[in-house]
């Protein structure tokens, strides 16, 4: 999970590593995700989130689709 300065540098970085592209967001969207994901981490009553609660944070920010699914889909 890395910062990049531009789309051009992202493409160059992916090519250099021989990696398939994953997912890209703006730093603004990342900041909102970080705020929602981590803000309770040091609170005295902290309890681990369920997978559904974590998924809801991603979904709420529009981070949807197979790439952002935290658990495997149920077998069909």
């Amino acid at each position: 999970m890395v910062f990049l300065r531009s789309e051009e540098r992202l493409e160059r970085w992916l090519a250099a590593g021989g990696w398939q592209p994953g997912a890209t967001t703006t730093a603004v969207q990342l900041h909102e995700l970080a705020r929602r994901w981590w803000s309770s981490r040091l609170q005295p009553g902290w309890r681990p989130r369920t997978a559904a609660e974590s998924q809801a944070i991603l979904d709420d920010l529009g981070l949807t689709g197979d790439f952002w699914q935290l658990t495997s889909p149920l077998p069909r």
Binding site: M1, V2, F3, L4, R5, S6, E7, L10, W13, W19, Q20, P21, G22, A23, T24, T25, T26, A27, Q29, L30, L58, D66, F67, W68, Q69, L70, T71, S72
Partner: peptide, 10 residues
């Protein structure tokens, strides 16, 4: 800045 994630969430 951009943020890139290589690895799928699961």
């Amino acid at each position: 800045l951009l943020w890139h994630v290589l690895v799928p969430a699961r």
